[in-house]
Design a protein around this nucleic acid. Structure first.
Lengths: 201, 201
DNA sequence: TAAATTAACGAACGGTCGTTCGGATAATTA
DNA sequence: TAATTATCCGAACGACCGTTCGTTAATTTA
């Protein structure tokens, strides 16, 4: 077996554990989910889990790191492409909402903070989040400037970005595919509301 | 001592416990906060706490019930007053955001779901939330109809309401008084963004 | 003042927690 | 095939969990 295959195998085993752990933790919370619970849903023994991570806190970290890295990779090229500001904004929202709805459990964990982690892990995740937030702030800032050509303070643009975050990140509080349509429809609605307000033309 | 005074005294003791418990639980999570932790921050003994509630789950329920009842009481008269639709919407947002920022810890708990509670308590809270949500949906629906006079489906209005919820409820993820202004300023920003989009006139 | 109720406490219980350890089995490599 | 490494496990550890018990101090009521 090649080195890459070994890595894939390991990642595949770990990925499966991260997926199933995230699903259960999204329901029961970090402290509410025991290592024994995780052993059961992953079909492994309690002690066998510790082959993949050194403790429960690291598992939580890995779920977060994987998620934010994926999210960031998905949208980081939006700034490089030749796009109009509103196309960039639309792309950001669509990426985020689609990823969110496809990974509801992980996102629930990712949006619940890093209080349980040590300083270093917490900071690593903070940097990932910060990178993503700055990406969003740039895209929102460019869009607003393209529409009004007056200058707005960083604080105001940041606050607007957080409001957009809110509309997108609150999805897990209400979304059901049956009642609220596809990810694309939700993304379009958020884009429309954020850019033009709640009243359709 | 009169009956009412007795009730006040009891509520005052309980209220103090609910406040301090909510603060700690907002940091550590429900399962992450032990009864011994709560005994310490409330300046009481471990067993002494059980005089005010019968178990930890009931404590969580009481924090939620008190919060949602206050929130609902604050805005339930908006429909009765003679107000223009946009004034009602503005009032709802201001009430919600102000309460939110004044009670950040409780709101953090209130927005984290009822997974830890039994069916009956969970349902009691669900009804309170539902009542509040319907209030918001009515106000948002009236506003949208007043601006466009075409008819919109309930689903669309509900989705818009949830987007507004998102902007308001995500506050705990970013708000600091130093960087982001007063509750009123945040409320105005949310109202403006929700009604007219992100680009100031 | 006497009785009754409220508020508070220390100590202990059974149970579950995260983690560790020594060893087994399966897979890969030399 | 032999050596090496990656997976996996049962059993056990000490620590901490929510809760209960019997009792005492403080306050209110009669």
């Amino acid at each position: 077996m090649s080195d890459q295959a070994v890595i894939n195998k390991r990642l595949s085993g770990l990925d499966e554990i991260l997926d199933k752990s995230a699903q259960l933790m999204a329901h029961l919370g970090y402290h509410g989910t025991s290592m024994r619970d995780l052993a059961q849903v992953t079909g492994r023994s309690l002690s066998g889990l510790y082959h993949y991570f050194s403790n429960k806190e690291e598992l939580l970290f890995l779920i977060n790191q994987r998620g934010f890295t994926s999210l960031l990779a998905m949208s980081s090229n939006l700034l490089e492409q030749e796009l109009k500001p509103e196309e960039r904004l639309s792309g950001l929202i669509t990426n985020h909402v689609t990823y969110f709805i496809d990974h509801l459990s992980e996102m629930r964990i990712m949006t619940s903070g890093t209080m349980e982690m040590n300083e270093q892990r917490s900071q690593t995740l903070w940097k990932l989040k910060q990178e993503y937030t700055e990406l969003a702030q740039n895209i929102v800032g460019d869009y607003i400037r393209s529409q009004t050509d007056t200058d707005h303070s960083t604080n105001i643009i940041n606050r607007k970005t957080y409001l957009l975050y809110g509309m997108m990140n609150w999805i897990f509080g209400w979304y059901s595919a049956k009642d609220h349509g596809t990810a694309t429809q939700v993304a379009d609605d958020i884009f429309s509301t954020f850019t033009s307000g709640c009243c359709p033309k």
